[in-house]
Each structure stands twice: as C-alpha cells, then as structure tokens.
Design a protein around this nucleic acid. Structure first.
Lengths: 142, 142
DNA sequence: CTTATATATTTGATATATCAATTATATTTG
DNA sequence: CAAATATAATTGATATATCAAATATATAAG
C-alpha cells in the first residue's frame, strides 16, 4: 500500500535521480565528458557572463567549495577560462571557451528533446500544478 | 518569466535538496551523527531484516559500492552489525544494534513532524496528484 | 588612516557517487 | 562433475558534497 504523504519524497528523489541519469546518457551521445551540472554552469555563464563563483553556487544549490573544484575541472577540460577580475580582485572572471560554446550549442537540442520526452502526455496545466505544489513544500521548509 | 516546462526539474531538485537539509537539521537535534540516508537504511532493515546490501542499494537508488562504504561507517558507528550469511556466503547478515534501534525510535517522531511541516496546507488530493505526475515523468524516462 | 568586519575563494578532511575491475561464492549448462 | 556464467560484495580511481579553517581583498567604523 502506497500512501503518498509517506512516499512523495521518495518519488521526488527517484524522479530527479532518474532524470539526471537519463540526461547524462543522452548528453554523452553528443559530447564527451560533460555532466548535467557542468552543462548547467555553462548555461548560466552564457546568459549571465558576469556571474561570480559564489553566485553560481547559489544558482545550482551547491557550496562554493564544490564550485571551486568543478570549475578547476572545467578549466582543465578547456570548457572555461578563469582570469582575475580587476574590478574586485577577490573574484574571478569566468569565460566560456570556443570549445565550451560549441558544446553548449550541441547540447541545446538534446536538452529540449529530454524535456519533450520527460513530459510526454503531461499537459502544461499539470506541470504548473506540479510546480505550484513543490513551491508550497519549499516555502514550508525554508 | 518562469515557464514550468523549463524550470520544473530545477524546482524538483531544489525541493529535494532543501528537504534533505531540513531533515538533517532536525535529526541532529535528537541524534548525533546520522544522515537521512543512514536513517533510511535503518528503517528498511527494521521492516525487512533479511535485506542484502544489493537490495538496499536498489531501494535507496545508490550503487553497491556506495552502500558498502556507508555500511562500513554504520558498523563503525555501532548502528549495525555485519556477519556472514550462512545461507549464501556471498551475502552478509545485517543486524540493527541496540544503539541503532534506539536512534530509530528517537527519529520516528521527527520524521513524522518533518512531513507534517513540509505538507502543511497541502491536501491529500494534491499530494496524490503530485505523485501521479512524477510517476508519469518517471515512466517516460525509464 | 587603521582596525574590525565582511566577502570571495581555496584547501583539507571526510563522506558519498559512479564506473570499472576484482574476488568469492552460487548456479547453470554441456 | 567441470566449465561457463551469474551474483554479492569489495576496492581503486575520480568527482562531488559539506563543513571548518585559512587566505586575500574590500568595505565599514572609529
């Protein structure tokens, strides 16, 4: 017997983990060696190039230590270039490399296709409702 | 402008991460040094004492390598006892220690209170709908 | 200006996640 | 039965998560 109040978080967890795996699998068909989170960082930097590492950390719900290490790796893989920010020498300037931009453009259609597959047979209204319920939960616990 | 089809996974991720933090915070008021996942393993073993490590891994959506290490730790912390399973010598018998049982009993009310807080103002019907939508997404991607 | 405080990032320690390879034991098949 | 295959768990390598402490720079307060 499944009682949603007792199992909803279980289902949420399962959904997000499955989606991560699903996305990673599809990404790896098009691009080598990039994770969902690295792609997300590229996307954020692409639309807001002035983001600091701390701001990125907030956006992706990780702490700054994780971001430091992820960006180290992304620099090593030549997705990003890190240089000193002369405005505020505590920060860095993060730039997407040509390789990073290429990857991003090749991933865009995959991202769209992933969503389409995931939401097949689910109406816009139903997604709005899903979002609304999750927002309620969020505001209850934060 | 927030378009749920593009942001729902973001919200799902945020919700589950916040709930994890919220739970961990509340657990640590009652018990020292236990994580949400370790608690979950204790709960599963409590209701199904014959579970193998592989079965536990499936239940908590982790791989067997993670479970090996988590259980190592839980044995070290005296939450669990690991002994050879004479029926099938590839497996182990996992038993909850007295300390583990005590922890579990002290956490039960916290778990119930966590859910109550998280779901305040959300009807049973709404939770069922949430669950239903997530199940649809799951079946689309697996 | 100088001290105190705040902010941005890094580093170290420890836990967890994931993949691939390995070991030990069980089961199947020829 | 012996060889092949399958299953359970471990180990090693690498990435990530999290906390606390450290470092560097900026800003505020006296």
């Amino acid at each position: 017997m499944n009682v949603p109040p007792k199992t909803v978080f279980y289902t949420i967890e399962r959904t997000i983990k499955s989606y991560r795996k699903f996305s990673n699998r599809n990404f790896s068909r098009v691009v080598d060696d990039i994770t969902v989170d690295q792609k997300l960082i590229l996307q954020y930097l692409n639309s807001s190039p002035e983001l600091s590492q701390t701001e990125i950390a907030e956006l992706v719900f990780k702490d700054t230590a994780s971001i430091t290490r992820m960006i180290d790796l992304m620099v090593k893989k030549d997705f990003l270039k890190r240089s000193i920010n002369t405005e505020d020498r505590r920060k860095f300037k993060l730039e997407i490399t040509a390789k990073g931009k290429d990857i991003l453009s090749r991933l865009e259609p995959v991202i769209a296709a992933n969503r389409k597959t995931a939401f097949a047979g689910i109406s816009e209204e139903e997604l709005i409702q899903l979002d609304r319920t999750l927002q309620k939960i969020l505001s209850n616990i934060t």
